[in-house]
Computed example of a mutant assay.
Amino acid sequence: MSEFEKELGWDDVIEKESDFTLLPAGDYDFTITGFERARYEGGEKLPPCNKAVVSIHIDAPEGSTTIQHNLFLHSKCEGMLSAFFIGIGQKKHGEPLRMNWNNVIGAKGRCKVYIDTWKNKNGEEMQSNRIKKFYEPSPAQTVSQAPASSQAGVFTPGKF
């Protein structure tokens, strides 16, 4: 829960209205704005395991939205975990990486978004945005996206 979220009382005053924006399918720049540790209870394709729920914020001409994206910590999903960490510039191809979740918030990248259509428990058709894939950043983006603590010793001409 963010620092601005709180439980409301029965007689509290409310004013905020829905800020849900459904983005068209496409490629977007994003920033990770949140991370939670959670547990997946298991299903047909994947047994119970830990999962990371990352909040992926996208600003687009059509509006802004935040997509909750699940990353399952299971060997069947290791390729998806690698794609995520490569996408935010924290993993290089062919090199092992100890996942450092403390460096995820604030990370930036680019992803492919699609529109997922599903039915709610009342049978109404609903739509939401989902992440299809994370793109590998260019070498210049990787250096500029690295957290300040990991940039120590990185030489950038003209910067002191």
Rank of each mutant, 00 (worst) to 15 (best):
E125Q: 11
I131H: 05
R130D: 06
N120Q: 07
R98K: 13
R98E: 05
G123Y: 03
K108S: 08
P96V: 11
M126S: 03
E124T: 09
E95S: 09
K132A: 14
G109W: 13
E124P: 04
N100A: 07
P96M: 00
A107M: 07
G109V: 09
C111R: 00
K112H: 01
M99T: 08
K132H: 13
R130W: 05
T117S: 15
K132S: 09
T117F: 09
E125V: 15
K112I: 04
M126D: 08
R110F: 03
V113L: 04
K121F: 12
A107F: 00
I131T: 08
Y114C: 05
I131G: 06
D116Y: 01
Y114I: 13
N100P: 00
S128N: 14
G109L: 03
N103A: 12
K119C: 13
D116A: 07
I131W: 01
N100S: 06
L97T: 09
E125W: 04
W118T: 01
R110L: 00
M99I: 09
M126A: 00
E125M: 06
M99Y: 12
W101M: 12
N103F: 04
I105F: 06
K119M: 04
W101G: 13
W101H: 08
M126C: 14
N120W: 00
W101S: 14
R110T: 07
G109R: 04
V104K: 01
W118I: 07
K132Q: 13
S128T: 11
M99H: 10
G109H: 02
K119T: 03
N120I: 11
E125Y: 01
N122A: 15
N103G: 08
S128Y: 00
K108T: 12
R98I: 09
N122T: 13
C111H: 01
K112A: 11
Q127H: 15
N120C: 10
K121I: 10
V113S: 02
V113T: 02
N120R: 13
E124Q: 15
K108Q: 14
G94N: 10
P96A: 10
I131S: 08
N103H: 08
K119N: 12
I115V: 15
E95L: 08
E125C: 02
N100D: 07
